[in-house]
Design a protein around this nucleic acid. Structure first.
Lengths: 110, 110
DNA sequence: TTATTTAATCGTAATATTGCAATACAACAA
DNA sequence: TTGTTGTATTGCAATATTACGATTAAATAA
């Protein structure tokens, strides 16, 4: 069908999946890494930096903004984007909880 | 087009995206959480546990196995699955590196 | 051998994602 | 006003994903 049956899963499971989906495309990974590296707003140069067409980048930015991972503000003719640190930290805590499930007393049995 | 332009991104960016894609569906998150909780092989009861049809679960398991995050071994008529701890740790390190980019001297500027 | 049980695979329908050309919009400059 | 610049939106084509019924395959039981 193409549509996930979100109603049979917990809010946490759906939230983890939603954040993971944000990272499930290398262009969005690249955008986020660039925003980190620059450590400030990025105005416009993402298109040249990434190498995809402007509408494509704009679409990826929109998805990241809808999830709250980045913020954008208009600066004259251009728009500046940066990481939303508060939401990023919240996302990171959720993902870490999932990734760091205790492995100490776990052993492969297959 | 529906196909990601993986060739313009680094191996690391593509790897992060590939692992993230594994977590980008709540059913796979649920499967992995269950494998963790049980802390041993799981033979068969995933279908009742999750609430999706058997072919659907089988498909999700296949994706996780292809990525190396879980292992499966035949036990009589059934198949047992568990986390591949070695690969999981490697994946976790890669994802952590991405998620934990330094936020200390970063401040929202938008 | 013929069931039975369990999981994988096939085939297909519905929906989602990716990418971009064309266009629209918004802010500023002349 | 009319450009110009930078970004968002629209529309669409190509591909991917999700889900499951039907079937197949493999191991065991009778």
């Amino acid at each position: 069908m193409g549509l996930a049956k979100t109603e049979i899963f917990t809010d946490e499971q759906n939230a983890i999946a939603a954040f993971a989906k944000a990272f499930a495309h290398p262009a969005r990974v690249s955008i986020l890494q660039h925003l980190y590296k620059i450590n400030s707003c990025v105005c416009g140069d993402l298109v040249e930096e990434i190498g995809l067409a402007q509408p494509t980048i704009s679409q990826h930015l929109k998805e990241l903004k809808n999830l709250g991972l980045i913020k954008g503000s208009v600066e004259g003719t251009s728009v500046c984007y940066c990481i939303d640190t508060e939401n990023w930290t919240a996302m990171k805590n959720l993902m870490s909880q999932f990734l760091d499930q205790d492995l100490t007393n776990k052993q492969d049995c297959c």
